[in-house]
Computed example of a mutant assay.
Amino acid sequence: MLPNYFNTKPLTDYMRHDLNIPADREAGSLSAGRVGRIAALAAASSAAYAATGHLLALLALLPPPDTKGEGADEPDPFWSRLRQASGASALRPGSLRIAVVAALDGHGAGLAARLLEAFGAMTRDQRDATALLVGEHLTDDGDLPGPAATAGELWLRDVELTAWHVVHHHRRPPTRLAREQFRDAWRRV
């Protein structure tokens, strides 16, 4: 699952601060060296894009929410059981919808933060129940091996770690001064 990628703000910030290249500069006026530096910065910033895509792929392993909507007489069975097992109302499709749509557009930090908050608030019993429910779904068709509880726990861990990566990569990039201070501190050790 790959999100659309139009969130160029982190790359633009790096270009402006590190390479002294304004965002509206024409590409034809750049030297090959500057183009190479931009390519290196783009490759470095691709981790946020990849992490958001992986987070969406993990969510895509779950059944799609019922399209009847929040007010339907019969709620979606999987998502209702997920909400009940986890104790997290943040894991309802209606609560996740805006964050998932934003992640599909390349802005995954909101979804990641919401998932981290929901998982972090679970008790051990809620986490075990959530892992079992997700694991039963994942192993139901035989595509994924192992006991359901193990598969579900691995899915939860993967979502948590991936969400952490998304949040980490979407934070404000360090300034040139902060990077120089970091380098100098480690050189002096």
Rank of each mutant, 00 (worst) to 15 (best):
F119A: 12
G69N: 04
A48G: 15
A131Q: 06
R127D: 01
A149V: 15
A90Q: 14
H137Y: 00
A178V: 07
H168Y: 13
A149C: 08
G152R: 06
T67G: 02
S89E: 12
F6R: 14
V189H: 09
L41V: 08
L82N: 00
I21T: 13
L62N: 00
L61N: 00
A102Y: 07
G69F: 10
V166P: 04
D76M: 01
S45M: 10
H137L: 07
A149M: 12
R114W: 03
T52G: 04
K68D: 11
P22K: 06
A47G: 07
T150G: 09
D141K: 03
E160A: 14
H170T: 01
W164M: 11
D141H: 01
E160D: 07
V166D: 05
W164E: 11
R81A: 12
N4Y: 14
A90L: 15
D128H: 15
R171N: 06
P147L: 07
A60D: 13
A57Q: 06
K9R: 15
A102E: 15
L133T: 00
S29L: 11
E26P: 03
D13F: 07
A60F: 02
S31Y: 10
L154G: 00
M15K: 14
S29I: 04
E136T: 05
A121V: 11
P63H: 01
T139S: 05
A90C: 08
G106I: 04
L41E: 11
H137V: 00
A39T: 14
N7G: 12
E26M: 08
S95R: 10
E136I: 04
R183A: 14
E160K: 05
L144F: 01
F6A: 15
L104T: 09
V134W: 05
A112T: 11
A39V: 10
G69I: 10
E70W: 15
H107S: 10
R37V: 08
H17W: 12
D105N: 15
T162D: 02
G120H: 07
A148D: 06
A163P: 08
V35L: 15
